[in-house]
Every structure is written in C-alpha cells, then in structure tokens.
C-alpha cells in the first residue's frame, strides 16, 4: 500500500464523509497513516466532512406503518404441509419430537385398526391437521415455533 497525499485524502473525505472506517477498504490503511503523520491537517479535513454527515443524520428513519407490516405478513409464505396442528400441539405440549412422532404414529395406527379404509385414515389425519395446506396468517400462529425444533 503506497502513501496517501493530501489531495487523495481530501477527495475521499469529500466522497465518503468523515469516518475513515466507512471509506473503501483498500485505502483505509493509508488514510490512517496519513492521519498519524499529518495530525491536525487530517483531523480538520475529517471534521469538515463529518459536519455534513451529522446534518444528513438529522433525517430520521421512517417508521413502517401497521398497515404495511400487516400487508407484508399477509403475503408471506405459509407453512408447508407435513407439520400439522396436531404435530405442533404435541411438541408444544412439551413432548420431544421423537415422542410426538410416536404419538402421531399411534393416532395413525389407531385410525388404521378401527377405520374401514385408508381414505378414512387420511380423513382423520387431515381433520387434525391444516388440510395439508396453508396455515392462517402468520401472526395468528403465536410465538411458539415448533417447526424449528425438527
């Protein structure tokens, strides 16, 4: 990395502002060396650039409206099939995933042993699930996320 002269230092401050840590990676080291060597001159240039930075920071970030948040959530992907309400109820009740799977299998076995047909078994399972399709709006699911436990 070569030396940085005043012209280059000034140009960088003018373009990127008064914080060297926000300057281009490739030039930061030389810039810090310039500060070490030129002290007051460098600090004056940085302070001048920083005064504009401060003015720009007076612009407060906009706050997203509740309507925007809701519209975005309403359009979000829905939970895929394969994790039914029954599954979430079982795991949410404190059962481990393995035990929940065993219980779900028990439901299946029971349905098979008592039901007359595979269709009836599927119907029983679907009734306990989310129709194997979309869930309701994301916010209605609450804060418990059993999906991530799997």
């Amino acid at each position: 990395m070569g030396m940085m002269d005043r012209t280059r230092f000034e140009a960088l401050a003018e373009a990127f502002g008064g914080r060297i840590d926000l300057w281009p990676d490739a030039e930061r080291e030389a810039a810090w060396r310039f500060v070490a060597e030129q002290g007051e001159t460098a600090r004056a240039l940085l302070a001048d650039a920083a005064s504009l930075d401060e003015q720009l920071q007076e612009l407060r970030p906009p706050q997203p409206s509740a309507a925007l948040r809701q519209a975005i959530l309403d359009a979000a992907p829905r939970l895929r099939a394969g994790r039914s309400r029954l599954w979430r109820w079982l795991t949410g009740a404190g059962l481990g995933a393995g035990l929940a799977a065993a219980c779900a299998a028990g439901v299946l076995a029971g349905a098979v042993s008592t039901g007359p047909s595979a269709d009836a078994t599927a119907d029983a399972l679907m009734a306990a699930s989310d129709d194997g399709a979309a869930l309701g709006p994301v916010e209605s699911l609450g804060s418990v996320d059993t999906e991530s436990n799997s």
Partner: peptide
Amino acid sequence: VGRGDPAAIQALM
C-alpha cells in the same frame, strides 16, 4: 422463510 417458518418470516421482516 422459504419453508414458511412464521418465526423466520417475522425475524426477516
């Protein structure tokens, strides 16, 4: 999010 994980959707938003 691609799997429809509600917590991830909230977090990414």
